[in-house]
């Protein structure tokens, strides 16, 4: 650990009596340090960067026809369900689309939806939880019962219902995921707010006439940053699983927008790939989901260790 970025004091400076106190540094510095010490977390981050590169840069380097199915391959064999071979290293799916190219597009859509929804859900949840905890009394009671009602509906049941009423687009799916995933963060942040609002610095601000917006914005939310960052990672991981499950059940984006979940839906439900032995239609897409979710969870775990917050979930 080097401290080259620290300002160099001019002239001799005496250390504090009783020995030096090691500087904890800014939250960001602390975060970088704890994070880089955790090998699993670094592995998770590297995996995530590789997957993101695969999804965004991949299509630039590897061209495949994803707009019309290839029914006959250049070598004269049938395109649909073709096994891996030259020109299509991971084989073809049941309609005749290149699996490797589809994995890339699917990755982009899955990650996009997961990240935006996870972030949006956390922002909503944090604001809601902070307001509920800060104002307390009847408002807290009312807002938390609304959270309880939301948590009573298992997400997949709710999602299948809504998706069967309205045909989802990418932005609608993000909105829906955000709407159902804000509940957990709301509860966590509300709990922390209850204890934070009794601290002296918040009391002092209130005595000086500071309003609720300032208290929440300047003190309460920044102090729950640990919880928030950790929550975001788990929210993203959960959003990716929920999305893929929804796609698997056939209630998601149209086939023109492939995701890892819809690729598995095609393989398992339409091509019976698990019975026919079309392993290339199942394992690559499945592995992408597992790798992404494990990588994000490893990062989240390391962040939790570094912020030492106790989460109710897992």
């Amino acid at each position: 650990m080097t401290f080259t970025n620290l300002p160099v004091p001019e002239g001799p400076v005496e250390g504090p009596e009783g020995g030096d106190v090691e500087s904890e540094g800014s939250a960001f510095r602390l975060f970088v340090r704890t994070f880089s010490e955790n090998k699993l977390a670094v592995a998770g981050l590297v995996t995530l960067v590789v997957i993101a590169g695969f999804s965004w840069l991949g299509p630039v380097l590897y061209h495949s026809n994803q707009s019309t199915p290839t029914l006959i391959l250049p070598n004269g064999l049938k395109g649909p369900n073709a096994a891996p071979g030259p020109g299509h290293p991971l084989g073809m799916d049941n309609s005749g689309f290149d699996v490797l190219g589809r994995l890339m597009i699917g990755g982009r859509i899955s990650l996009e939806i997961g990240f935006i929804a996870g972030l949006a859900g956390t922002v909503i949840g944090v604001t809601y939880g902070a307001v509920s905890g800060y104002f307390g009394k009847w408002l807290d009671m009312l807002l938390m019962r609304i959270v309880d009602v939301g948590l009573a509906f298992p997400i997949i049941f709710l999602f299948v219902y809504i998706s069967s009423v309205v045909k989802p687009s990418e932005s609608l799916l993000i909105l829906l995921l955000a709407v159902v995933t804000w509940l957990g963060p709301a509860r966590l942040v509300r709990g922390e707010t209850l204890s934070l609002k009794t601290r002296e610095y918040v009391q002092a601000l209130r005595t000086m006439g500071g309003g609720a917006v300032r208290s929440i914005g300047r003190h309460i939310v920044p102090n729950t940053i640990g919880t928030i960052v950790v929550t975001i990672t788990f929210q993203i991981a959960d959003a990716i699983i929920v999305l893929s499950t929804l796609q698997f059940l056939g209630f998601g984006l149209p086939p023109t927008d492939p995701t890892w979940g819809s690729m598995l839906n095609n393989a398992i439900n339409n091509a019976s790939a698990q019975v026919n032995g079309y392993w290339w239609q199942i394992y690559p897409a499945g592995l992408m989901i597992i790798l992404t979710v494990v990588a994000i969870n490893l990062i989240g775990d390391a962040l939790r260790d570094s912020f030492e917050v106790r989460l109710q979930k897992r």
Partner: peptide, 21 residues
Amino acid sequence: SFILYAVPQYLLAAVLVIIFA
């Protein structure tokens, strides 16, 4: 448990079918 948590249930089912069917 990390991996089991990351495997969607439908994929777990499909893999079990491949192994045992």
